[in-house]
């Protein structure tokens, strides 16, 4: 799990994927079961098997297309593809790596803005309190995305049903939490800001 090859342009993306995740995209023989079973394939710009094919060919323009694709952000990590893959290619792991790489290079698909904003608001919430503070998460998400009126009717119902905390729950190990965040999110672009 060395990370010293990050950003090294002398290697193709599929080499780095194999080094970082131990998944070989070359194992895929394009049967298409992943694309057939993927619940989000119809919303993706390239379905899973096509992303794998682009990585296999591995030309710089195809790698760039993959990293700039919406597909990598639409993957829900439902793990259906790996459950059905006859070659057991752990594609969800590859998707995780590709998302991280797209963020590091600053080339994440602009249409993924809301999805990324939600993930970042989520991590920001647990970074400060240790546990998810749902009210804070939604307020932060709205501020990031300007979707001010989304779910405006759901919140009062949730509150009445006793499903929302007014104040966050703070854990005691806050120092340990900030140590975990500073020890992992080193690159500026990755930070939940």
């Amino acid at each position: 799990m060395s990370s010293n090859t990050h950003g090294c342009e002398c290697q193709t993306l599929n080499h780095r994927i194999e080094e970082q995740t131990c998944v070989s995209v070359a194992e895929c023989y394009q049967c298409g079961k992943c694309s057939a079973g993927c619940p989000l394939a119809e919303e993706m710009d390239y379905p899973p098997s096509q992303v794998l094919r682009m990585l296999q060919i591995g030309t710089p323009d195809l790698e760039d297309k993959v990293l700039r694709s919406m597909s990598i952000w639409l993957c829900l990590t439902c793990e259906t593809c790996i459950a059905r893959c006859p070659q057991e290619v752990d594609f969800p792991k590859v998707m995780d790596y590709l998302r991280g790489e797209a963020l590091k290079r600053g080339i994440a698909n602009p249409k993924a803005r809301d999805i990324i904003a939600f993930h970042r608001a989520f991590l920001d919430s647990i970074r400060t309190t240790g546990r998810l503070y749902e009210v804070g998460l939604i307020v932060d998400y709205k501020a990031r995305t300007r979707h001010l009126f989304q779910d405006i009717l759901l919140a009062p119902w949730m509150f009445l049903a006793g499903k929302l905390h007014i104040f966050p729950e703070m854990i005691k190990g806050k120092k340990q939490m900030s140590r975990i965040f500073s020890g992992t999110l080193k690159k500026k672009k990755e930070e939940p800001r």
């Binding site: 829900l76 990590t77 990324i116 993930h119 970042r120 989520f122 991590l123 647990i126 992992t184």
Partner: peptide, 12 residues
């Protein structure tokens, strides 16, 4: 860390 953590950072 749920989906957010593994979507953005493996070690986290």
């Amino acid at each position: 860390g749920a989906t957010a953590a593994h979507n953005l950072n493996h070690e986290l």
